[in-house]
Simulated assay, not measured.
Amino acid sequence: MAKKLTQKQNAESGFRASAKLSTSMQRVLVDLLDLQLQGKQAHWNVVGTNFRDTHLQLDEIVASARRLSDTVAERMRALHALPDGRSSTIAETSSLPAYPTGEVDTKQTIDLITERLEAATGTVRDVHDSVDEEDPTTADILHVVLEELEQFAWMVSAENRKPEK
């Protein structure tokens, strides 16, 4: 027999993220937001051999990071956590190293973006197990983030790799 829902039994009174889960998701959110910003900085200032492909690939990374950050932030809100995407918060708490100013050669851009993709995936991997313990559904979102960012890291880094003998 189906239980009748009362007014108090709705999404607003459901599962709430712990402080640890909220902090973990905030770390992922900040890195994704910074990846968007740094990806655009790279996109606007990349120069050199294979410019067009690098330029276009950077836009793909930015679009993915934007979509993933929105998913993470909306999941946080669904769990009654408060996402903080302010520029000051990103600058103070991102695990990504700062991006250089000015024009950057395509080969260096490839290495810099790979480093940032790997930093962001490192954060996701760092928080994954504790997130999974508390909320497997949220961990499923982290799996998607890892899948996409690690694929980008592989594809981007392949540009500068030499075949193994």
Rank of each mutant, 00 (worst) to 15 (best):
V28A: 06
T101Q: 13
P97H: 07
A19G: 01
H55I: 05
S18E: 03
S69H: 08
R161K: 15
K4Y: 13
T23A: 15
R27F: 01
A91H: 10
R86K: 02
L37A: 07
Y99P: 13
N160M: 06
K165P: 14
L68S: 09
S24M: 05
N45Q: 08
D111K: 13
H43I: 04
S18I: 09
V144S: 13
K20C: 09
F51Q: 00
L58K: 10
L149N: 00
L21C: 02
M155E: 09
A158N: 03
T109S: 04
D34G: 04
L56S: 12
L35S: 05
I61R: 05
A73Q: 10
E164K: 15
H143R: 13
S69F: 07
P163Y: 01
Q7Y: 12
H128M: 11
S130R: 05
N50W: 01
V124P: 00
D129C: 12
P136K: 02
L149Q: 00
E148K: 01
E164H: 15
S18P: 03
D135F: 04
L58V: 03
Q7V: 15
T138N: 04
S69V: 02
E60A: 13
S22N: 08
E60C: 10
Q36K: 12
A139P: 05
T123M: 03
K40E: 02
K4E: 15
E118L: 13
D140W: 03
K3G: 14
